[in-house]
Design a protein around this nucleic acid. Structure first.
Length: 308
DNA sequence: AATTTCACG
DNA sequence: ACGTACGTGAAATTA
């Protein structure tokens, strides 16, 4: 019975939000779907997309991926190009904290989730199981959000005591990250705001609240905002550079979408080779991170799904 | 109008 | 004793 309900919910969500809604939003004057971006809404500095939101097109399930396939180039002379930053928020956490282990993992080209797994579960890199890697991945992402031991246990579906052990192990093994996060909170308390690498601010009026729940929320904001917001700063700079180059080079290809760590372009077939290196260059060089390489993956395809 | 649920990074 | 991972938007449901 639960499986039947969950299956129904998935289908109902995909149908009402995407399959039925998007065709109605095709504009009769252009024959295209046009989104809008809010450039000054999200407190971290991210963009948001609405009417329709094209930053939450499905990709996580097979049925969802069928919907993503519907996004295609404007004509037969074009192909879709997608370029995305690899693990950009973790790289920014490495750069901001300068944690030697995380920085080393990125510089040696290691699988960073495997590296975390090996350390947290105290096994050689070669002995990391897929389950250990899966858990380490949730640990790594959780850290970016300022997750608690309790929250980690919930996410991993394990007893609280085990969640606490992993949480403590992480901060014991990455002491620089622990110190960095404490600094984030302390600085936010002194300044009244958190800030990105480029100085974008999020004011945190609750950072000294007497209510522990309210204060905890502000403290997690103080940890997350510099990471999420610096990634937003970076891709915005990349977009500005890319737009300038597309214009000055008189290129036919067009920037279509931004999805936080990804840019999607309608690439004219005659420009694909040049465009691939141009986009990669703009994204990679937009905002260099001290001691941490920035990696960009670029692909093309007949639809958004296959461009990845 | 507010809340719930669920789609994405 | 209490609450517990960040940022969004759209559709359906509830009030």
């Amino acid at each position: 019975m639960p499986a039947i309900i969950l299956n129904y919910r998935e289908v109902a969500k995909l149908r009402s939000t995407y399959v039925d809604a998007l065709p109605r939003l095709v504009r009769t004057d252009t024959g295209l779907v046009h989104t809008s971006y809010n450039q000054a809404l999200a407190v971290t500095g991210r963009l948001s997309s609405n009417s329709p939101n094209l930053q939450n097109i499905p990709i996580r399930t097979d049925r969802g991926r069928e919907i993503r396939k519907a996004f295609i180039p404007r004509s037969a002379e074009y192909t879709l190009l997608s370029a995305d930053y690899s693990q950009i928020e973790l790289r920014i956490m490495a750069a901001l904290s300068q944690d030697e282990h995380l920085v080393a993992a990125f510089n040696s080209g290691e699988d960073v989730h495997r590296a975390t797994a090996a350390r947290v579960f105290n096994v050689p890199l070669s002995d990391v199981s897929s389950e250990m890697r899966r858990r380490a991945k949730m640990v790594n992402f959780g850290m970016i959000y300022g997750i608690t031991a309790f929250g980690l246990a919930e996410r991993l579906g394990i007893p609280r005591a085990e969640g606490r052990e992993i949480h403590e192990a992480f901060f014991r093994l990455f002491p620089t990250i622990k110190g960095y996060m404490d600094n984030c909170v302390n600085r936010a308390r002194e300044q009244g705001y958190a800030e990105t690498m480029l100085g974008r601010r999020q004011y945190l009026r609750d950072i000294s609240s007497a209510n522990a729940t309210v204060r905890g929320y502000a403290e997690r904001n103080a940890i997350n905002m510099p990471i999420q917001g610096s990634a937003a700063d970076m891709i915005k700079l990349a977009m500005i550079r890319l737009d300038k180059e597309l214009t000055t080079r008189n290129m036919k290809s067009k920037l279509l979408l931004q999805v936080h760590d990804e840019l999607v372009l309608d690439a004219h077939l005659s420009e694909v080779t040049e465009l691939k290196s141009l986009v990669e260059e703009c994204m990679q060089q937009a905002m260099p991170l001290p001691n941490v390489p920035v990696e960009v993956g670029v692909g093309t395809g007949p639809n958004w799904l296959e461009a990845h």
